[in-house]
Design a protein around this nucleic acid. Structure first.
Lengths: 339, 339
DNA sequence: TAATATTGTGCAATCGTTTACATAATTAAA
DNA sequence: TTTAATTATGTAAACGATTGCACAATATTA
């Protein structure tokens, strides 16, 4: 294979200097239009393609956005990643992906890798509550955007679904459907998204004059099995609920399966809502009402933040805290009243 | 923020040269153990971390594996990506991701980006039948592995599920379950994976002395709607099938929905199998028997190929054509006989 | 016409590593 | 003890782009 052409080759061909060629290619105003045209033409003629690695070394910054997520193959994260990719590509950037596997140390290592790779920005969904290792990013002056599981204290920019609102919507919807005793399958309260979902549930009850019964709030892991167990517990109460809002689609599915196994009719006897709008929710029977977080959209917004005009001038960075409106996808599992 | 330490800083601190430091850090045998220890110690003391960009420029190769898939957020692809990531990370490599959106031109552009970024290897699942643009990769001497939708003619290394075998397994399973007239929802025959699935179906019928009835082979897109239509067509035949093997989980789901809507019992009246083992298949009612392609595993193998010893010596590269054994996940939709 | 401002280019250093080649220091062989 | 072989280190040139500074050449002003 023949060597690729460089700006030096173009310079030689035109009897000029690499500096001029570089400036011409970057459309520097100090170069005359005539020269620019000449340079661009010979660049094309020689099949020149810039070497991003060389530029990155010189600039101390490469046109790569680093993305760190707990798991690449979770449907939510893969959608966000797609959104980020599509957005940054518009600006000629690419993405580098790492997984934290929900391990704080792995996340810290990945950050290290990204920082060393001189990425232009880092998008990250936290592995744990601990945000201390993010300081390294900030110290190295790399723009940081946390999403979904955001770093409230440290991270300049955050993008997240409004979990409070989503849960509020779901709970309110159940109330409007005439359910009287609404339970909540609450996720790990160490994680802010689950805290907010619980808050939304409470607020909706409050606002409608419903009493909050702590027996109806069950700590549940985001798994089918855990959901099943929680449902069992709830339905064996002396005074069982007639609806369940879950902070997770998986535990909602578990609850749904449990109810069906006990011949409890959904949505007639009990209403169920999930959270996240996982792909499977629409194919369940009954199909599961869930809160969509518009993950693709979220990714696009994360991508945009890096290129916001406001972020360009270092002095007056506007730190963004973006909350995306969630959407309640009403399906069969919660529709007691005919539409 | 203070500048990061470089090998020059280490060299200065030790009153030696950058060359020695570089060699020591790379464990070059020409450096004495004493010096190595000295270098490593001061490296640690100074908080030195190598700059991969500089190394990439000098080496003309960066420690990044480029991955190009049709869609990042398809569950199959995101699993493969995860597998690749986990495997290459073991070797200190990272992945850069692009999507082709099933567009040949976008794919070609992405290849260009990867080649210019001097990636150490490219893993790719083809956007279309056209493989001509892959020549550029081969010309630039970058190791290429195609997976799933492989480039049969051009690509040195290929990794794919054995679609023939998968379809053969599913069809044979239906036969063993006592189904008599087995139909096939065939995918786009321009794509090799769908051709192979049809072949597997045929071979299984053949081997068991079943007649092949072209009325029972219906061209179907990989969508729920298309599957529903195909099922409708099949079940309105004068002599309808009592089982359907689909080349896609989505069309299998469509068929399943259609049958239920017509009160045709599954698996008693009709058996159904899908293909790909999409996450939703296990939650359907009845749960859908499907062929798992072990996507995570596939990704890991793709990752491994880049680091195979055999590929290191340029002269005698063994071009690999790896076919992964698929696994039939038997669920309710095809189990007519009690287990 | 001389002095000054404007515009377009070139020089050379820089980013941080790697490596071919040269050289110094040590050991083994004669 | 001289020579050859071995081992450890240093010199300097890459890799390909960017950019501060200097300097022509031209245009503008006095």
């Amino acid at each position: 294979m023949t060597k690729k052409a460089t700006i030096v080759d173009i310079a030689k061909a035109l009897n000029t200097s690499a500096a001029t060629v570089s400036r011409a290619l970057n459309n520097n105003p100090r170069i005359s239009d005539k020269t620019k045209k000449l340079v661009n033409d010979t660049a094309k003629a020689l099949g020149y393609e810039p070497n991003p690695v060389a530029a990155a070394l010189r600039n101390g910054r490469s046109k790569i956005i680093g993305v760190i997520v707990p798991y690449i193959d979770r449907s939510f994260f893969s959608s966000v990643i797609r959104g980020i990719e599509e957005e940054v590509k518009k600006h000629g950037y690419n993405i580098m992906i790492c997984q934290s596997l929900e391990d704080r140390q792995a996340e810290a290592d990945n950050i290290d890798i990204m920082v060393n790779a001189r990425v232009a920005g880092i998008a990250l969904s936290l592995a744990s509550n601990d945000e201390t290792h993010l300081k390294q990013i900030i110290k190295s002056n790399i723009p940081l955007v946390t999403f979904d599981r955001v770093a409230d204290n440290l991270a300049p920019h955050t993008v997240a679904a409004d979990d409070f609102e989503g849960s509020f919507l779901a709970t309110t919807h159940l109330i409007r459907q005439g359910y009287q005793k609404i339970a909540h399958l609450a996720g790990n309260q160490d994680i802010n998204i689950y805290r907010n979902r619980l808050r939304g549930y409470r607020a909706a009850l409050d606002e409608n004059g419903y009493e909050i019964d702590s027996d109806l709030i069950v700590s549940t892991k985001s798994s089918v099995e855990s959901g099943r167990l929680s449902a069992e517990k709830l339905l064996s109460l002396t005074n069982p609920p007639d609806a369940i809002t879950s902070a997770s689609d998986f535990s909602a599915l578990g609850a749904l399966q449990y109810c069906k196994s006990k011949d409890i009719r959904i949505p007639q006897d009990i209403g169920i809502t999930g959270f996240a709008n996982e792909p499977f929710t629409e194919y369940l029977e009954p199909s599961l009402t869930s809160v969509s977080q518009n993950s693709l959209e979220m990714g696009k917004i994360v991508g945009q933040v890096f290129f916001d005009k406001a972020n360009q001038d270092n002095d007056s960075i506007q730190y963004k805290k973006i909350l995306l409106k969630p959407e309640l996808i009403v399906r069969e599992s919660s529709q007691r009243q005919k539409v």
